[in-house]
Design a protein around this nucleic acid. Structure first.
Lengths: 267, 267
DNA sequence: GCGTTCTTGTCCATATTATGGACAGAACAT
DNA sequence: ATGTTCTGTCCATAATATGGACAAGAACGC
């Protein structure tokens, strides 16, 4: 393929070869991570990665021998193994983003009363990294810290995609096509939602991932203009009518600016 | 090499082939994990893994592209990247061992006054997973949660090796030989310390990893008799004379039994 | 300055390694 | 019984990862 330009062109330096197997193993791991504790059946990994079944099987079983993956004997599903958090301990724990966003999440959840989520992008996925439960007695709690979804299926994902250059966003959405089916959406729908978010200034889903819920997400950018995260409010739909939506969005946007300042300061 | 015995012999099911590159990438990652935030120079990874430099270089740079590894521009060292904790979020956080050991660590550190460590085995390494600082004004704090060392170089490692079948212990020590140099020890010394720990009933190092300190470690076994972790007291040497050593060891052994009970109960 | 000895990074012919089509068994449904 | 969908395995083959050799940069000595 392209053997040109040893130095980078714009910013990405992607195409290093000689490690197909390693890359494949990682894409398997990312799919397994989306399955959290319950894990994912082999066939689903095959579908989501586009690899052949023998290949996925071989990779997964080598990773089991290395304690990177676990197989739940009961269900036969595969999940992230205990060696992964062990490796993760090598890194300093409280990430700068979490520190910067903490006070804003607290303030906003107190003010709004519903649950707030902080979600980051990792590759082609969104990953919920913090959650603050609100005071109102009915709360949307089904999304937990560690929840991972293909970019595009949640309002946070739509917000992050809206904050990316259109071309990059389109590329990611296309790459995730095989995984949209499980969330009952498709490329065209997601692209439409991204366009709507760009117009509004925030991401929104009338029908949240959970029946009867609605979500609003703003995007948080790093000083260099790339999206670092999304801040999301999820609530039962009836609590987020048009007027209330406007109010909530304004609070989110205000706190978003605070977080962006805090990131700038800590950098 | 040995291409024999496709079916397992006793308990291990190790030799699945067709993924050399993935295994190599993982052994690189484990070495990088030992370097914590500061990371490890490439040459050190080459030494510790026994792989060739081009291979390590290729693996490391692919992992960088995948955000599994970071390169610190200032120092040129390689470290565990931010995608690793992100994958780790897929697992439930507080591990059963930590839950089981928590009260004992608290009790023992209150009683002894010095810092207590909980250390697990992960492959051929020890990994510090919890720490409780004591009340005495001089404390050994240089070992942090996440610290990773070759099994055998710390008293916790010696304790865990002492609790393993002698043959397994010897195999691990031999496998770590290339990494002992950096800790100024060698295979013969470590095997001697393991033998001493078996005699005493606990692991001990007159000369801790830090100058002027002394450490005592007991091993914690799972119901099936395999070592799950080690509990360690580290203190300035003068605080652990022969009589005190005896007292401290008895407290540790008592709490060890409590933890073993708690594990049994939660399983 | 200039050699020496470190380090990291790159190339590419080669053979070792990972690949996936084909097959088989297990579980479940009809 | 017979189909369908899942997981697991085999092995000839092609593609992949390998590592010797080379290059360039950094740090030190003098």
């Amino acid at each position: 393929m392209d053997r040109t330009s040893p130095r980078s062109s714009t910013r990405a330096t992607e195409p290093r070869q000689g490690a197909q197997a390693i890359r494949r193993a990682l894409s398997v791991l990312r799919i397994l991570a989306a399955g959290r504790e319950d894990g994912v059946p082999l066939a689903e990994v095959v579908r989501a990665t586009g690899l052949t079944r023998p290949t996925v099987h071989r990779i997964v079983h080598v990773l089991i021998e290395e304690s990177i993956v676990e197989r739940h004997d009961k269900t036969g599903r595969y999940a992230i193994g205990n060696q992964v958090p062990e490796l993760a301990l090598a890194r300093p724990r409280p990430s700068p983003l979490l520190v910067a966003a903490g006070p804003s999440l607290r303030r906003a959840s107190a003010e709004i009363g519903d649950t707030l989520f902080l979600t980051v992008r990792t590759g082609n996925d969104t990953l919920c990294v913090d959650r603050r439960i609100g005071a109102y007695p009915i709360q949307v709690l089904s999304i937990e810290v560690g929840a991972r979804r293909p970019l595009g299926v949640s309002s946070a994902g739509v917000a992050i995609l809206a904050a990316l250059p259109a071309q990059d966003a389109r590329k990611i959405v296309t790459a995730n096509e095989a995984r949209f089916e499980a969330y009952r959406t498709d490329v065209a729908t997601v692209l439409g939602e991204i366009a709507a978010a760009r117009r509004l200034g925030y991401g929104m889903r009338e029908i949240g991932l959970i029946q009867g819920t609605k979500s609003i997400s703003t995007w948080i950018k790093t000083p260099d203009g790339r999206p670092a995260a999304a801040m999301t409010v999820s609530a039962v739909r009836t609590r987020l009518g048009p007027r209330r939506e406007q109010e909530v969005a304004e609070i989110l946007l205000r706190e978003t600016r605070v977080i962006e300042q805090a990131i700038r300061a800590s950098a």
